[in-house]
Design a protein around this nucleic acid. Structure first.
Lengths: 211, 211
DNA sequence: CGATACCAAGCAAGCGCTTGGTTTGTAAAG
DNA sequence: CTTTACAAACCAAGCGCTTGCTTGGTATCG
C-alpha cells in the first residue's frame, strides 16, 4: 500500500478547503502522494524521461499497480496539471485580496508564481508550463479552461496598470514575457544561494521599473 | 544519399565564413541538412519524442544510416547546439558592431535572439534552451564553454546600462529573466499574426521602459 | 580499387500497459 | 467478539511494441 504519510503540508487552509471540495487530492492519501512525486519527477527529468516504473518506485509500489489509480500515464500528467492550477489559482486569489494597490497586486502575483514554480510545496507549476506539449490535444483543451481563469487574474491587474500608464507594453504580451521569465527561474534559481524569492521579486519589479 | 539541396540559405556571408572555417556544417551538405531537420524536429516535438526513425525519414534515409554520420542520437543534439551557438554568436557580434549606443545594442541583442528562436533559419536556438537537460553532463560541459562567450555579449551591454543607471536590476538576473521571456515566445509567437519581430522587440523595450 | 554513403534486417533493452491472483481494510451478520 | 463477505489495493509476471543502435552487405564515385 502507498503508506499514509504524517501530514507535513502543515495545515494549509486553502489546500484543506480544496481537498474538502474534492477539487484537489489529499497529499496525505495515496493519490495525492503519487501526484506529488509525479510532479517532482516530471519537473526534474521531464515527462518523457520519467517512466511508470520511476513513478511507482517513488511511492513504493509495483509499476502495474499504478494503473489501479490512473488509466494511463498521461492521465497522471493531466491530474498533476489540473490540481496544480486549481491550487495556485486559489492561492493567488487570496494573495490578490490581501493587496491594496495594483502595484502591490502585481508584486503579489509575481511572488506567488515564483513560489509555485521553484518552491518545495508546488513543484508542479513548472510541469504545467514545460510539459504542456506532452499532453494530448484533448487533454489540453480541458486544462485550458482552468488556465484561462488563472491568466485572467494576471491580465486584470496588468490592464489596470496599463490604463494608469504605469505599464507601457501590451498587457497580453507582457504577461507572456513574464510567464517565460518567471518559469525559467526553475532552471537556475536555488533558494540557498543567498537570494530569497522576495529578493528575486524585487529584481523583477526593478527590471520593469515599477518601484 | 542525402540529396544535395539547392542553396536556399541565400548566401548568408556570416554562415559562409563559418562553413569555410569548418565551424558549422554546410546546410547544403548531408550533415548540415540532417542537423537542420533535427533542429526543427527537436524544437517541435522535443528531443525525447523525436526518434532516430523520424530523423532519418526527414532526410530520406534509413534509420540505421544515421549512425554513419553520428555515433549516437545525443551527438546529433550536441551538434545542433554547438553549431547553433556558433552561428548565433557570430550573428550577434555583427549586430552589436553595427549599433552605436548601449540602448541600441540591447535592442539588437533582443531582436537577434528573437529571430534565432522563432525564425525560419535558426530553429535551433529553442532547442538549445529547452532541451538542455536532455544532454548528458559531459556534453553539457562542452557546450557551456561556447555558451559563456555568447552570454558575455549580453552581460557586457547590461552591465554598461546598469552603470549608467538605465537598468536597475542586477545584470545577471535580468539576463536570465530575458532568456526565459524571449525563448518562451517560441510557444506562442506566430509571424503571420500581425506582429513582426520588430514589433515584439519594441514591446520588450517598452516593458523594460527603455524607450 | 578503396573509401564513402547507404540499405535491409534485426537485436537487446526498455517502454506503457494488461492480466490473474493475493493481501488488506471495513463492516455487516452470526 | 468472532465470522463471513467483498471491494479496494497491490504484486508478480509478462505481452506487444518501440526504442537506439549494430551488423553485413551493396551501390556509387573519384
Amino acid at each position: 500500500m502507498i503508506e499514509p504519510v504524517t501530514q507535513n503540508d502543515n495545515e494549509n487552509p486553502i489546500l484543506k478547503a480544496l481537498v474538502a471540495e474534492n477539487l484537489v487530492s489529499d497529499p496525505a492519501g495515496a493519490r495525492g502522494r503519487l501526484l506529488k512525486e509525479a510532479a517532482r519527477l516530471f519537473r526534474d527529468k521531464g515527462y518523457e524521461r520519467t517512466t511508470v516504473r520511476d513513478l511507482a518506485a517513488a511511492v513504493g509500489i509495483q509499476s502495474g499497480s499504478l494503473f489501479h489509480h490512473f488509466r494511463t500515464k498521461e492521465e497522471i500528467l493531466k491530474a498533476v496539471m489540473v490540481e496544480t492550477i486549481r491550487l495556485n489559482t486559489a492561492v493567488m486569489q487570496q494573495a490578490l485580496a490581501a493587496a491594496d494597490t495594483d502595484r502591490d497586486k502585481l508584486r503579489a502575483l509575481i511572488l506567488c508564481e515564483l513560489e509555485s514554480i521553484t518552491g518545495q510545496t508546488g513543484e508542479a507549476m513548472a510541469v504545467l508550463v514545460y510539459e504542456w506539449r506532452s499532453l494530448s490535444a484533448a487533454a489540453q483543451a480541458g486544462v485550458l479552461v482552468l488556465r484561462d481563469i488563472y491568466e485572467r487574474l494576471w491580465l486584470d491587474v496588468l490592464e489596470s496598470l496599463a490604463a494608469q500608464g504605469v505599464v507601457k507594453a501590451e498587457p497580453f504580451v507582457m504577461r507572456r514575457m513574464l510567464t517565460g521569465a518567471l518559469s525559467w527561474t526553475v532552471t537556475w534559481y536555488r533558494p540557498n544561494g543567498g537570494m530569497t524569492l522576495s529578493d528575486l521579486t524585487d529584481q523583477v519589479i526593478a527590471m520593469l521599473r515599477l518601484d
